[in-house]
Amino acid sequence: MIGLTVVAALLATLPLLLILTLLLKQGASSLNVAFFTAMPKPVGEVGGGMANAMLGTVMLIGVASAIGLPFGIGAGLYLAEHKAEPLAAVVRFLSDVLNGLPSIVVGIFAWQFLVRPVKHFSALAGGIALGVMMIPLVTRTTEEMVRLVPDALREAALALGFSRWRTSLTVVLRTALSGIVTGALVAVARIAGETAPLLFTAFGNQFWSTSLTQPVSALPLQIFTYAISPYDEWHALAWAGALVLLALVLVVSLIAKFVTRPRFGSGSD
């Protein structure tokens, strides 16, 4: 019977190994400098890159973080500092529910509020959709990290004459900071690969665009467009894009792992 669980473990990790090896093989062969610096080329022309999509992804992550981090950290602080209050239980639960919502639904929600009224797609709308998805992720990790800060530190700060808000910001949040940064990076890694909420918000763009009010491309959007196209050159670019996207996600996740853990409590003895 132990054997069965071993087989399960092997079968579960098999797809990962298959996907990774294929990505490396297919992606690396079509990856070159032009991929990072050049713009997409029309069908039939060889070459071209995803420079604009990478810029778009960076812009979208920026907007999403500007929304997701303050709201997530603020809500997480509230949950940790008022853990016994009924409102905290409600918010904690709904935050989990929000986290479980299909990303495509978040996409149509963002479209209703941010695209429909102004009648055109925009980077801003895409970023905000991703930001909404980030909020529950950041909320959760912030709450967990802040709860790890010993109450003794809070008391020490209060006894020194710190007001509650200074205690929260300069002592509690500061002590939990590295854990919160880890959580934020994990959230970024998660939304960086999201496609569905961007389909009708950021929409995609074949051109170089740095404007938040214009549609932008993003790596996952571009991979999707190229993957479902009938052209071999585009398929090759899709593989290269997927390799870059996965590398981005993994690098951010690994950085998150290595950000120093919070230091707590007493020292050497």
């Binding site: 530190l153 002590t175 900071l177 707590f264 007493s266």
Partner: peptide, 13 residues
Amino acid sequence: IGMVFQRPTPFPT
């Protein structure tokens, strides 16, 4: 009125 607690509470950061 200052206060010192049972366990030492230096701010770790």
